[in-house]
Design a protein around this nucleic acid. Structure first.
Length: 804
DNA sequence: AGCACGCCGACT
DNA sequence: GTCGGCGTGCTC
């Protein structure tokens, strides 16, 4: 029996997906703890890899069969036992590697950077000889895959002969920000004496002395430099003369330090109070209970969340609140920070890696008790959780679409059970899954049916674009909508126009031969981008110039079809030359902070019309907006996806809520080619209840969730045949493990069959109760490693968001 | 991922 | 007869 450390190594493969035992060097026995990152030698060449210590204990093995831990990467654990346990569960349920899960839970800087270095170890070998193969400038940090095959084989030959060595290094990216703080060592009496000793023209020095003489508080070097317009050299000189001392201290990169305001709890109405009481009671009793808070737009869900959090804090506990990435606006953050101040840590993708790391450390050090963030914030290293809240729980962005394919809601449920605390799911339009669970009393339903200000919901008008087009109207704008926009411009009120662009945007087509310009790598048409004057592929990023003539028949009658925000913006400009238009889509918001800037401009009424894609539908509150127009309500309806009705209903309901929130009554125009579709008709009256019933019936008929569980298995390969064959083979192996009740769809090519030069084939399994499925699928995944080398990638998605 | 081993074809 | 191609297995 010897003491060993069980380590998950940073090698994401199926074969290495379990802990490896390592010896603990004597000098580390007191230091090493579970949850730390370490560097370990791994594999034949003993290359260094990062690893996570998941357990320390005794094991019945021979010491000389084990290797030793090389070094520590952390002085204290980065993971607690809860998160280690969670990672194991997550890897199992999402069919992914535990190492991938561990890295997903941590800030990006915890991901090690690896570098390789060439070293000559044989004196027979000269530097020139090696330089003939690889220039000496590249010996440091070289990448194997950038070398030619010849170079690779030459180097490996030398290595086998023992002439050279490849030194592996693991670099820790987790850096803290250090700043200098300055403390004065002189007082007012000393000032004149020192000044006299200076040269006459030493003005900067004099400024510094004057400042120090009258300053007893500690200031940072940067503020001092700015304040006195002096350089660090002056300060260093001052340090040398003993006027001041400089001290290096760690500083958090606080992305929200400018927010200072304080907000006080609002008075709750009866329903809000009931909801708060129910959840508080559950916090009080430490119940791992899930609540579904169903509240129409403007019903004051956020206030309930905030007071729930306040209750948890008052009980000495902490809270996590998840918000969709897109809704994590400065307004939102200010509101929470205004209530809980420095106790709040914010985590979202807009922060730099350093900022995220610092917020994460604040949480870990118990300096923050409230975590607000997007999907991955569910892994915040917070302890003693009193309540978890997921706002807009129906949002698809809570499901990660690459490995580990987890749903934040499921992770939240796991943590809620771990901490025996309630989980609150809030939405105006709950996902069918959640609503169905509350129907069966699995979740407790809490309702907020009334808007807090008592204002009626906006009037929604459905416009039949088929009729509109017959009367020769514009492709994008119906007459009633144009009139309504015109009216707002005259009344100095603002309008929001939404273009539903999912899977559909402007492409170009030849009018003579029907040729459509497609991506050479993917099976989809290229999208026109006027800002860069090019055609871009939204899947792989391929870009090429806009053709002047048809590449197929050389006709010049090649023109734009479909609708993109840019094109609509152009049209709006011609129709309303005086209107100030702001466009918000993936292209205008790519840069950091662009999103906020556009919204602020609009909020400050520096524009009349906000034109954008789905992203404008979420959680914005502009009191001066009285018109919302949805230009094409049904593009999502046409997608081959069983959730398309649900998405459309949610989107329309949400965007309608943007109109007339304050004292002005709002109006909503929905342009559609399917005016009779139930998702559109029921969104008109914001009738969630009827939509739920109708959609549940349809899901029942089609044997879809929430009546059935779903599992999607996809194979990808450069050869279409290979991908297809693999899927048939997988199904053949899986079928005997399934009961007669399981329904298998496919194998079929994905609706977008080719992306980045790869073909995708998939099967979807719909099932109610399959005790063998999990094991069978895990086995298939394990076996997939053997054909992974042939470029066949198998991926498994439990409860996919769509089948596309 | 990256390295060793081992089994086949094309060369000195 | 050997060198080197890459298919396969293993890494505490």
């Amino acid at each position: 029996m010897i003491q060993v450390a069980k380590i998950i190594v940073d090698v994401p493969t199926m074969q290495t997906n379990s802990p490896y035992s390592y010896l603990i060097p004597k000098q580390l026995t007191n230091e090493l703890q579970v949850g730390m990152r370490v560097v370990v030698p791994f594999g034949n060449g003993n290359r260094k890899v990062q690893g996570f210590v998941v357990q320390i204990g005794m094991e019945e093995v021979d010491a000389d069969q084990l290797k030793s831990i090389e070094s520590l990467m952390d002085l204290e654990p980065v993971l607690n036992t809860e998160l280690i346990q969670l990672s194991r569960w997550l890897a199992d349920t999402t069919f992914s590697f535990q190492i991938t899960c561990l890295l997903t839970m941590l800030p990006n800087v915890m991901r090690a950077k690896y570098s390789k270095q060439l070293k000559i170890v044989d004196d027979q070998m000269s530097e020139e000889q090696l330089a003939d193969i690889l220039p000496s400038t590249q010996w440091q940090d070289f990448e194997t895959d950038t070398l030619s095959p010849l170079q690779q084989s030459e180097l490996s030959k030398l290595r086998k002969q023992g002439k050279i060595e490849i030194v592996y290094r693991v670099k820790n990216q987790a850096q803290t920000k250090q700043i200098f703080q300055i403390k004065s060592h002189i007082n007012a009496e000393q000032e004149s004496g020192i000044v006299d000793s200076l040269r006459k023209n030493a003005t900067k020095m004099r400024d510094l002395v004057h400042f120090l003489a009258n300053q007893s508080k500690i200031v940072s070097q940067t503020t001092l430099e700015k304040k006195l317009a002096i350089s660090s050299a002056t300060i260093k000189a001052g340090e040398a003369k003993g006027w001041l001392v400089r001290k290096k201290v760690e500083q958090y990169r606080d992305p929200y330090k400018e927010f200072k305001g304080k907000t006080t709890p609002l008075t709750l109405n009866q329903e809000q109070q009931t909801a708060l009481d129910e959840i508080s009671q559950s916090i009080e009793k430490s119940q791992a209970k899930t609540f579904l808070l169903e509240g129409v737009t403007g019903s004051g869900k956020t206030e309930v969340y905030l007071q729930t959090i306040a209750y948890a804090l008052a009980k000495g506990k902490t809270a996590i609140m998840l918000v969709p990435e897109i809704a994590l606006t400065p307004q939102m953050v200010t509101r929470v920070k205004g209530r809980f101040g420095k106790q709040v840590a914010v985590l979202h993708s807009g922060l730099s890696d350093g900022e995220k790391f610092d917020e994460w450390r604040r949480i870990k050090r118990h300096e923050a008790q409230v975590v607000v963030g997007a999907r991955s914030a569910i892994f915040a290293p917070i302890e003693n959780v009193g309540v978890i809240i997921i706002d807009e729980e129906h949002e698809t962005s809570y499901k990660q679409d690459d490995a580990p394919r987890y749903h934040a809601r499921n992770v939240a449920q796991w943590r809620s059970k771990f901490y025996n605390c309630p989980l609150v799911l809030g939405s105006a339009t709950p996902s069918l899954e959640s609503r169905a669970r509350s129907e069966r009393q699995v979740y407790q339903l809490l309702r907020l049916p009334n808007r807090i200000n008592g204002h009626p919901l906006p009037k929604v008008q459905i416009i039949d674009m088929r009729e509109e087009l017959q009367t020769g109207a514009d492709q994008n704008f119906s007459q009633p909508l144009l009139n309504a926009i015109d009216k707002r411009l005259n009344m100095q009120q603002q309008s929001i126009l939404m273009l539903n662009r999912r899977g559909y945007s402007s492409f170009i087509m030849c009018r003579d031969c029907g040729f459509v310009l497609k991506c050479p790598n993917c099976d989809i048409s290229l999208t026109l981008h006027m800002d860069s004057r090019s055609m871009k592929c939204h899947y792989c990023g391929h870009e090429e110039p806009i053709p002047k003539q048809c590449p197929n028949c050389h006709s010049r009658k090649i023109r734009y079809y479909g609708t993109g925000t840019e094109k609509v913006e152009q049209e709006l400009k011609t129709k309303f030359p005086s209107a100030r238009i702001l466009r918000m889509d993936v292209d205008t918001t790519r840069r950091k902070g662009a999103h906020e800037r556009i919204l602020r401009q609009f909020g400050e009424r520096r524009a009349d019309i906000l034109l954008g894609t789905q992203m404008i539908a979420k959680g914005l509150d502009f009191p001066n907006v009285t018109l919302v127009g949805v230009l094409n309500a049904d593009t999502a309806l046409e997608l081959p996806d069983f959730r398309s009705s649900e998405r459309t209903f949610q989107l329309l309901t949400q965007v309608s809520g943007r109109a007339g929130r304050a004292d002005k009554l709002g109006e909503v125009f929905v342009q559609t080619f399917n005016p009779d579709h139930y998702a559109i008709q029921l969104a008109k009256t914001q009738n969630y209840e009827n939509f739920f019933r109708k959609e549940m019936y349809i899901r029942h008929q089609g044997k879809y969730p929430p009546y059935y569980f779903t599992l999607q298995i996809t194979a990808a390969n450069k050869e279409e045949k290979m991908a297809a064959q693999k899927m048939f083979a997988v199904l053949k192996e899986l079928r005997p493990q399934l009961s007669a009740d399981a329904i298998v769809l496919g194998p079929t090519p994905k609706p977008i069959a080719r992306v980045k030069n790869k073909y995708y084939y998939q099967i979807v399994i719909k099932y109610k109760h399959e005790p063998n499925l999990h094991t069978a699928v895990t086995k298939i995944l394990q076996e997939s490693q053997s054909y992974y080398r042939q470029g066949i990638q198998l991926s498994i998605d439990a409860e996919p968001q769509s089948f596309m």
